[in-house]
């Protein structure tokens, strides 16, 4: 692991996209307890659990919220956070750029 690799324990929560705070190149996620402004549709995000399981929260094409269980992993070298579904297919992959107590940022890719 690199010295600047985030402590995985800090990731153990449910993070939702706080798109109002995004920059051109980084997406901002906040814990679900954050005082988000109202959103027209569900907020996508993910819950990362200590046992390696994760739940992916998405938006269906019809606007309905979706939940998908899977497994997550943080690559210590590349800082790429990956969630795979039950068939081990990657359903989310994002390079983590910072992790704070109530703020997680990933590169927009």
């Amino acid at each position: 692991m690199n010295d600047d690799t985030p402590d995985p324990a800090r990731l153990h929560k449910r993070w939702l996209h706080s798109y109002e705070e995004d920059t051109e190149t980084e997406a901002v996620y906040r814990p679900e307890s954050y005082a988000f402004p109202p959103s027209r549709g569900p907020r996508p995000g993910f819950e990362l659990r200590p046992d390696g399981s994760c739940i992916l929260f998405g938006i269906a094409p019809t606007d309905a919220p979706t939940t998908e269980p899977g497994r997550w992993n943080l690559n210590g070298d590349t800082r790429v956070l990956t969630c795979t579904d039950s068939t081990r297919r990657p359903v989310m992959s994002a390079r983590v750029t910072s992790v704070g107590e109530d703020r997680l940022t990933v590169k927009k890719e």
Partner: peptide, 20 residues
């Protein structure tokens, strides 16, 4: 279902966009 630059809305005259 999650924000990404690598998906499409299947029309070419709307710019590629990360998420909502």
């Amino acid at each position: 279902r999650v924000p990404s630059c690598s998906d499409s809305d299947f029309v070419t005259d709307t710019p590629n966009q990360y998420g909502p």
